[in-house]
Simulated assay, not measured.
Amino acid sequence: MQLAYLRRVAAGGAVAALTFVAAGVATATPAYAATSKVSVVHGIPDTPVDVYVNGEKTLEGFKPGDVAGPLDLAEGRYDIALTKPGEPIGQAILTVDDAEVPGGANLSLAAHLDAEGKPKITPFVDDTAKVDAGKARLIVRHTAAAPAVDVRAGGTPVFEDLTNPNEAKGDVDAGSVSADVVLAGTDTVVIGPADLNLREGTATIVYAIGSAEAENLDIVAQTITGLHSAPSGVPSGTGGEAGTGLTTGWYVLAGAGVLLLLLGGVRVARTVPGRR
């Protein structure tokens, strides 16, 4: 699995994705940036949500652990609200008003807990660069209310000292690998082990979600396809695979969240019950 290579990549690979989102939006040009490819990951434990777009309910019961997308999201302005299932829009958990949706990005939005256990939304730019023949990309994102962790393959750390909400990544030999997550610098397993099928020409994104204090840490996996090298490749990728049958409104939520995070405009209406 080329562990030494992975360690070198990990040393410089854990970055704040928000910086790259800002750069991507700033450099996009109207000629090719009318839409964004958006996937959404729900990583807040025990908190299914309903989604309202411009005052209308567009999605019911989006569940923790689900991955939705991708969809080509058109630019525009929208009012967004998230509520607990069945609750009125006036009791929203998160609200976004008059949000301008950017274009030209390929990204994933993770709804998750921060290091202190509070709900938030973090955008990550998905690396859709081509991979060499016989290779796959492994991306690990720390989106759990937990301290720094190491990610191991076959018992050997390959991504070290990863903190919320950062990521680490590397291109590896395609195939199956058994991975687990331990507290940084220890052998204390907090997630796994789990068997990952790293298919050639794909990127597998693994999110650590949940809360160490609540003892509900888990992982969510997302796959990006179409990263084969030429001549059979599709350089742009396809975003995250999912099978949740969502309406367009949910992806409107995703795009709105990106720009509002950039501008500091996401408002938390009230804390999710049971979280500090």
Rank of each mutant, 00 (worst) to 15 (best):
E87R: 11
G243I: 12
N166Q: 09
A11W: 11
A221W: 06
T225I: 13
A4E: 15
G12K: 12
D97H: 06
A110P: 01
A269L: 02
G61I: 04
T122Y: 03
G226H: 11
E75G: 07
T27K: 14
G245A: 05
D114L: 05
V272L: 00
P102K: 05
I89S: 00
D195K: 15
I80F: 06
E167V: 13
A31K: 09
V177R: 08
G274Y: 12
V272C: 00
I219S: 02
R270I: 13
W250F: 12
V172G: 00
Y251K: 01
G90Y: 06
S211P: 06
A4Q: 15
A194W: 13
G265I: 03
I80E: 06
A221F: 05
G55K: 10
T204W: 10
T19D: 10
T202E: 09
H42Q: 15
T163S: 03
A148W: 03
V172T: 13
I219V: 15
G201S: 11
L259Y: 10
I191R: 03
G24F: 04
G24C: 01
A129K: 15
V220H: 08
G154Y: 14
P64K: 04
I224R: 09
R141N: 10
A203D: 06
D161W: 08
T204V: 14
L262R: 12
A16V: 15
K120R: 10
G249S: 07
P70K: 08
S178Q: 14
A115H: 08
I139P: 00
G210E: 04
N54V: 14
G13W: 06
G274N: 11
V149R: 04
V49A: 03
T202L: 00
G233I: 05
Y5W: 11
P273R: 09
T143F: 03
P123V: 09
L246V: 14
D46K: 15
S236K: 07
R137P: 04
A68S: 11
V151K: 00
V38M: 09
P235G: 06
I89T: 09
L18P: 09
G257W: 05
D79F: 03
P123L: 10
V40E: 00
D180K: 07
V41N: 01
F62R: 01
V190D: 00
P193H: 07
G274S: 05
I121F: 14
G233Q: 12
A129F: 13
A194Y: 12
N106V: 15
L262E: 08
S229R: 12
K130Q: 12
A148P: 01
G117Q: 02
G192W: 01
G192E: 08
E200G: 03
L18C: 06
G24E: 11
V182I: 07
L217R: 02
A115I: 15
T202D: 05
